[in-house]
């Protein structure tokens, strides 16, 4: 009885895991003389065969539905991605505009005395010829043509 239990475990294992050729031969030799284990092996094989005899049918338009949903999600994700990139580019451009303008203002201030300008003139010059154009360039990123248009 204990021997049968061991063989039945081996039979189970032969269906589930890899068993060696020797173990396979051992099962083969054993079931020649043991009807109980032979029947056990047949029932196990029958069970596994039976499991493969189920046919599940999907909803007829299930695949098409899934494809449609995925296409919709892909488009939404693409739009979000584009939006993110545009705003990121705007943020970078705006930072560069502010930092650049500050640097230009510092340099222009150094030229105030030799060029006989006063501070207000330098400030107006930097604002008109540097800060405003670079700020407008940054803003233009938000109203870029093509797929980016209308995001701003």
């Amino acid at each position: 009885m204990e021997g049968d239990k061991r063989f039945r475990e081996l039979i189970d294992r032969s269906f589930v895991e890899e068993v060696s050729e020797d173990e396979r031969q051992l099962i083969h030799d054993h079931i020649r003389d043991c009807d109980g284990c032979k029947r056990y092996l047949e029932l196990t094989a029958r069970t596994i065969r039976g499991l493969r005899e189920f046919t599940f049918t999907s909803e007829p338009d299930s695949n098409a539905q899934v494809r449609e949903i995925l296409a919709h999600h892909t488009e939404t994700m693409r739009q979000h991605n584009v939006q993110f990139k545009v705003w990121a580019a705007f943020a970078v451009a705006l930072s560069m505009s502010i930092v650049g303008s500050a640097l230009v203002y510092q340099v222009a201030k150094l030229l105030t005395v030799p060029m006989h300008f006063d501070t207000a003139q330098v400030q107006a010059g930097v604002l008109v010829f540097w800060l405003l154009p670079s700020f407008c360039s940054a803003l233009r990123l938000l109203a870029a043509p093509g797929e980016n248009r209308g995001i701003a």
Binding site: R46, R49, G50, L51, E53, F54, T55, F56, T57
Partner: peptide, 8 residues
Amino acid sequence: AAARSEDA
């Protein structure tokens, strides 16, 4: 509903 044989 999916069984296609007596065993299944």
